[in-house]
């Protein structure tokens, strides 16, 4: 299939809390094709975990029959992740996104879910229709060959300085 993306995958699983680890590890394994750093991979894992947890706690409200859909796509050095449910939807996305806001204070939730997603990913878009469902689309670019470039810089700098030293001794 010749699509817009270099690679793509789709997962559907039951809305059970023990699937949270499965979801984030699967997406991380898929994204690892882009050769991310451990930190970038941890960011992706955390963001996916937050989104899936939202589906379980809020969208389906503990009902285990719901289905959570996770799609991941790769294009060049960017990973696109979509997490969607067909649950109860979010009435006011702006309020839900607010740091420390939680609609379930009795559950000891921190209200940091969307805040963490937004700071760990490059872009987060939330679309929701009440009683139809919610879709969270996230995007993160993996910075390529950072360490290699740095190494090259170092090597060239060292070369320059040694050349200079050489000149100095010639004189």
């Amino acid at each position: 299939m010749k699509g817009l993306y270099d690679n793509e995958m789709k997962l559907e699983f039951a809305c059970k809390s023990n699937n949270e680890a499965f979801a984030r590890i699967s997406v991380a394994a898929f994204a690892s094709q882009l050769d991310p750093t451990i930190e970038e991979l941890a960011d992706i894992k955390t963001a996916v975990s937050e989104a899936v947890t939202n589906c379980i706690i809020h969208a389906y409200d503990g009902i285990e029959e719901g289905i959570i859909k996770v799609e991941a796509k790769l294009k060049e050095n960017t990973v696109y992740i979509e997490i969607s449910d067909t649950g109860k939807g979010i009435e006011n996305i702006e309020i839900a996104k607010r740091p420390l806001y939680t609609s379930k204070p009795n559950l000891e939730r921190s209200g940091m879910g969307f805040t963490i997603m937004e700071s760990f990913m490059d872009e987060v878009i939330v679309e929701s229709i009440v009683n139809l469902g919610t879709k969270v689309s996230m995007k993160k670019s993996i910075k390529k060959d950072q360490t290699l470039e740095k190494k090259d810089e170092k090597v060239s700098q060292e070369k320059e300085s040694s050349e200079k030293e050489g000149e100095f001794y010639d004189i």
Partner: peptide
């Protein structure tokens, strides 16, 4: 090796 915002809620509690 991994913690998300659920851990924050747990710690604050």
């Amino acid at each position: 090796t991994f913690m998300d915002s659920a851990g924050i809620g747990m710690l604050l509690g």
